[in-house]
Amino acid sequence: MADQSSEEAARLHKFVDPVSYLSAFVSNGVRPDGRSCSTARNVTLNIGSISTANGSAMVKLGQTCVLAAVKMELSNPPLECPSRGYLVCNIDQSSSSLSEALSGPPTSEAQSLSQTLQDLLSRFVDCDDLILVESKLCWTVYVDVVCLCNSGNVWDACVLASTVALINTQVPAVNTDVELPLVSISSRRSLKLGTVPLAATFTIFKDKYCLLDPSREEELICDGTVSVIYFEDGGIAQITHAGKPLSSERLISMCKDGQTHTQTLYKLLNTVCT
């Protein structure tokens, strides 16, 4: 009976004052789900989830679930870059994944994430490799990412899922020696890709605590966000920061924690994709 009463009191505390609730935990070095500030949730990765796509992957970060699919279509190259193909990215945060999302046009958050993802993957996918006949024929690579459940840190899940889906992608051979190009599904090759990028995101709580791989509850009451993109060798490709200024010591500490986390992800990726 006492345990039930304490659980009800905890739920009430979380509902009435979520900031005080989280503060009571992290001040003791632990988060409500039992993780330390520098510990990420368990990651599950499945490839080839969609048989009708050229490549696909499903990622789960805790309860956050993201599905990425790659489809390839023949197109005319852009006039300004006749020797390059296209890469088009889209992230869909469906109404079932976010209680605050509404049906209809993409949310501003989804549009922003889509553009950021496209900017990142444009450095990963070799668009010169997508040309079939200069000025006449190329591949367009569509990367569609759907958030099936948002329990926090959708960005990291989107980066991992789309990256793995591109690694999983098989490009059909095309006979361009005939009047109408013929696509052969019996002969395929992999996309030409660069160094694999992975993300590690932190939320800043009370200008003091840096929480790796934040839950949705932590995101909603945070003071700022830092997202770091890493390469497999541990190098940092970019750092995105929103919120109040951070000291260099704190940023360095976060980058080290993020590096440790992404090295674990790279090991998982290499195991699943080989």
Rank of each mutant, 00 (worst) to 15 (best):
S95K: 09
S97A: 15
L98I: 07
S99E: 13
E100P: 03
A101R: 14
A101G: 11
S103N: 13
S103L: 07
G104Y: 00
G104M: 00
P105L: 00
P106M: 02
T107W: 00
S108M: 10
E109V: 14
E109G: 09
E109R: 12
A110G: 02
Q111R: 14
Q111S: 14
Q111E: 15
Q111C: 13
Q111L: 14
S112Q: 15
S112H: 12
S112F: 10
S114H: 08
S114K: 09
Q115L: 14
Q115M: 13
Q115R: 15
T116L: 03
L117P: 08
Q118K: 14
D119F: 06
L120D: 09
L120G: 12
L120W: 06
L120F: 07
L121V: 06
L121C: 05
S122T: 05
S122Y: 08
R123A: 13
R123I: 05
V125W: 06
D126L: 04
D128H: 13
D129R: 06
D129L: 03
D129P: 11
L130K: 03
I131W: 04
I131Y: 06
L132M: 02
L132S: 02
V133T: 10
E134K: 14
E134L: 06
K136L: 12
K136H: 13
L137T: 00
C138E: 00
C138R: 00
C138Q: 00
C138S: 03
W139K: 02
W139A: 00
W139R: 01
V141K: 02
Y142P: 05
Y142M: 01
V143E: 03
V143F: 03
D144Q: 00
V145C: 05
V145I: 10
V146S: 10
V146Y: 09
C147T: 04
C149N: 14
S151I: 03
G152N: 09
V154I: 08
V154G: 11
V154M: 04
W155C: 11
W155Q: 10
A157I: 05
V159F: 03
V159Q: 01
A161S: 06
A161V: 02
T163V: 06
T163H: 05
V164E: 02
V164M: 03
L166C: 05
L166N: 05
L166W: 02
I167V: 11
I167H: 11
N168M: 01
N168P: 12
T169P: 00
T169V: 08
Q170R: 15
V171I: 09
P172R: 05
P172K: 05
A173S: 15
A173V: 04
V174C: 07
V174L: 04
N175G: 02
D177A: 07
D177K: 12
E179C: 11
E179Y: 06
L180H: 12
L180D: 13
L180W: 08
L180V: 15
P181A: 09
P181D: 08
P181C: 09
P181I: 04
L182N: 05
L182F: 05
L182D: 04
V183L: 06
S184H: 10
S184V: 07
I185P: 07
S186M: 10
S186G: 15
R188I: 03
R188Q: 09
R189K: 13
R189G: 01
S190H: 09
K192Q: 13
K192N: 12
K192G: 09
L193E: 00
L193I: 00
